Simulated assay, not measured.
Amino acid sequence: MTNYPGASGNGNPSSREHGSDAGFGQRVDQIGSEAQQLWSDARGAVDDLGQTLDLRGRVERNPYGMMAAALGVGYVLGGGLFTPLTARILKLGVRLAALPFVKDELLGMAETAFQGYQTGRSVVGSPAREGSASADASAAGTPRPPSY
């Protein structure tokens, strides 16, 4: 049995007095006014949040960006976060994000290889000139040094 403030008697209809009905009515009015106060406080909080975020201004300045943000929020709240589609999208995103790093590494390796080729070509080109000079010297009759 629930006892309300201002209620009297043991719960039997015959023991209720006329004043207890007035106490119950006051309680209902109090609950109604508290509910209205809670509703107005909630509306005020939502309005304050709306002014802080300036959603209307953001939508006017960047409608496509806000549409994309709304789609993203809806996707996440709709349960799309842990789906195979999300895994594929993340995998593609990681690949696209890593592409510049891989490209830089490949260009660096190619540049190093090209420099090595240029260096090797100039080193290989020098003995060939000496070899042709030593061939000229041996043709002239001077002995050439032994090669090991």
Rank of each mutant, 00 (worst) to 15 (best):
P100A: 11
A35R: 14
I31P: 02
I31K: 03
D29A: 15
A68D: 07
L85P: 01
A87W: 02
K91T: 13
K91I: 00
R61L: 04
E34P: 03
T52V: 04
E34M: 12
G93T: 12
S33D: 11
P63E: 03
V102L: 08
L77P: 00
L53A: 11
V94T: 06
L96D: 01
L38I: 14
F101K: 04
V28M: 10
L92V: 09
L55E: 04
E34F: 11
G80A: 05
V102D: 07
F101S: 09
K91N: 09
G74K: 00
G32F: 08
G57A: 06
R58K: 12
G80F: 05
R58N: 02
E60H: 10
W39A: 15
Q37D: 15
P100C: 09
R95M: 13
L49A: 14
R56N: 06
T52K: 14
R43K: 15
G78Y: 00
L55C: 05
A69F: 14
Y64H: 07
D29S: 14
V59N: 00
G57W: 02
D54E: 08
V59L: 12
N62S: 08
R88T: 14
G72H: 03
L96C: 07
T86Q: 13
R95S: 10
A97V: 11
L81K: 08
F82P: 01
L99W: 06
S40K: 15
T86P: 00
L53F: 10
N62C: 03
V59I: 15
G78R: 01
L38S: 09
V94P: 00
L53S: 05
N62F: 06
R56T: 09
I89P: 00
A98E: 14
M66D: 03
L90T: 05
V102N: 01
V94H: 03
L99T: 04
L55K: 02
V76H: 10
G44R: 11
M66R: 10
G93E: 08
A68H: 02
E34T: 11
G78A: 03
L38Y: 04
V28H: 08
A42K: 09
A87D: 14
L77R: 10
Q37A: 13
G65V: 06
